[in-house]
Design a protein around this nucleic acid. Structure first.
Lengths: 338, 338
DNA sequence: TTCGCCAGAGATAACGATAACAAAATGGTA
DNA sequence: TACCATTTTGTTATCGTTATCTCTGGCGAA
């Protein structure tokens, strides 16, 4: 089934096609000047030998890998997956491939990952950013390639930024509830600072409540981030048990919000009649569950798309200094809130 | 912010540490014989220079990349994400990194992808398998590395297999319904053969119905695979409109099944009282939605874990011939069915 | 004392493509 | 026909690490 003999190289193809290895190399590039006759002869020879281009050699000699390194907290998250898809589509046309790694929401793991990725000499690196270990930061600063932080607006960014303010996004939700007369608002989130974005959302909730002169203490800790649907449901149970006069609850993600919704269903608690529920992320489920879920769409696909464009501009030299692209998340009013 | 000067190499580190480049190389390996004093001096020198190991050169010279290529249909799918996580964890201890690509459920795209991945000279390749273009098959056969097909049990595998029978899994669901006296069963799936596993599930449904002497024609085409929650809901609407005497419906995935459930909620159709609903995948949502969803757990994490073990065994030479590991998906009886 | 063994370190060449430069072939024009 | 511009092809050296072989010094056993 497999071929034990050594894989053919360009030299083998060149010999068979009666040209020099350099011409074979050119034939495998797009725009290189090779006559049609020669190129097809070469491709035919390559095909008959079962030749597969070896990018390890190409990478070393040309000092280009056509990799863009991307770190995301979790592979199992539709929002980050959308960002990766946006990136991937934007980079594909230029022949750039994504080298993906996930940090499991752990900045120590992120440090290991970033170092591993940089060893592969990517053309650029995209991190789901905000906070990182000092060493990670140093690695990024000295990497000598474009660095893009996403999903956040860091105070002191390493390089470029394509993101949004998690705190401001949650504030807009609080403002919305207050504008319709709701004042007793709770927040369901993680019980640790592992997930920096989740932490920012909770901080945004507290700040917004205080800005309205409201009590920001209805905080339900739902477990180690990221919070699952089940943990969201459990947290909602505790909220209904301990603070039954709560009028609305904002959840750190749509998944926990959906879990919370199901707990209300199980208990016969009417949403939004007795309590309003809001999420974050605008996952597909938010639009289709019953009642549909009020949430915030942080434009994950757009983040990826803009990051890809930015990378291409920087690599082309079109983009000079560090850019910060701040996106405006969209409040999606649906049935789970008034 | 970035360093315009050329990145330091092992030679620079060697000079600063007062040793030969070869010794630096050894110091960066695990088991290589370097005295502790020398090693720490080298690492210190490397750190002070901001040296980052260059694997492009290492890859070429050592003919090893420590990549395992993995293709999945979609990055935005919790089942495949679980398989990737299982793979990733199993390979990490050996220093193998995953090079991930997705095919968008398109075998032409898969062909392009497989070729791109093979150019990077991975140590092994894992495909979400079953059917591929002739050229893809040829590329895999001649790649000279272990090939693992997953999520399927192909009739004529390229190499190794870690999967299950999609048809048999759906048959078990049909058998379950028949065993509780349900005979008018429908199937909601895609309207094209793009998704080979979805197609197998539909074929399994038809065969199982025929085996029981039942009518297999209650087939609802829900759109281009993969079917979304929304498309599942629309399909359920059509089913209720056109075949209102249907007693149960099996959906090609949990996502479409959940969409179908929500449509029942919207119409006030009782599940499972008026109609039973089943899905496929055992996504988290299946366990928590109301009513919870009867489904099939295909053990996605286990697939990844076993595939990783198999790869390590093959690379070690422990595993001789091509292996086929057939897993048994688990029928999860929940509230959406009797 | 001699020999063998081994840990620790160095010297050399090579992995397979391509950047950079050079030369030959081609085509159009004066 | 001669000449220049352009296209097409070839030659040489090299990217940064490491496989492989060699060498040195120290230590224990005979």
């Amino acid at each position: 089934m497999s071929t034990p003999r050594k894989a053919p190289t360009m030299a083998d193809v060149a010999r068979l096609a009666g040209v020099s290895p350099m011409t074979v190399s050119r034939a495998f590039k797009r725009d290189a000047s090779v006559s049609d006759a020669t190129r097809s002869a070469i491709l035919e020879a390559a095909d008959s030998l079962g030749y597969v281009f070896d990018s390890t050699a190409s990478n070393l000699r040309s000092q280009r890998t056509d990799f863009v390194a991307v770190t995301i907290p979790s592979i199992n998250n539709a929002n980050f997956a959308d960002t990766v898809r946006g990136l991937s589509e934007g980079l594909k046309e230029r022949g750039l491939q994504i080298l993906l790694g996930y940090t499991d929401y752990d900045i120590q793991e992120e440090e290991r990952l970033v170092e591993q990725l940089l060893r592969r000499r990517p053309e650029a690196i995209v991190v789901t950013g905000g906070r990182q270990t000092p060493r990670t930061r140093r690695l990024l600063e000295n990497a000598g390639i474009p660095v893009i932080e996403t999903w956040d607006l860091p105070d002191n960014p390493v390089g470029h930024v394509v993101g949004f303010s998690n705190a401001a996004a949650v504030r807009s939700m609080v403002d919305h509830f207050v504008s319709v007369g709701i004042t007793r608002i709770a927040f369901i989130g993680g019980d640790a600072d592992r997930d920096t974005r989740g932490t920012d959302r909770r901080a945004g909730f507290i700040a917004a409540m205080q800005a309205h002169g409201l009590d920001p203490d209805r905080l339900i800790a739902a477990g180690t981030p990221p919070i699952s649907m089940r943990e969201g449901a459990d947290a909602m149970g505790r909220l209904l048990d301990t603070l039954p006069d709560t009028q609305a609850v904002i959840c750190v993600s749509d998944l926990s919000a959906f879990g919370a919704l199901t707990e209300c269903q199980r208990r016969g608690v009417n949403v939004p009649g007795q309590i309003a529920v809001a999420g974050f992320g605008d996952y597909e489920i938010a639009g289709i569950c019953v009642p549909s879920l009020t949430t915030i769409n942080p434009l994950p696909r757009e983040i990826g798309k803009r990051a890809a464009e930015l990378i291409l501009d920087v690599l082309d030299g079109t983009q000079a200094g560090p850019a910060t692209i701040a996106l405006e998340p969209i409040l999606m009013r649906r049935q789970s809130s008034p």
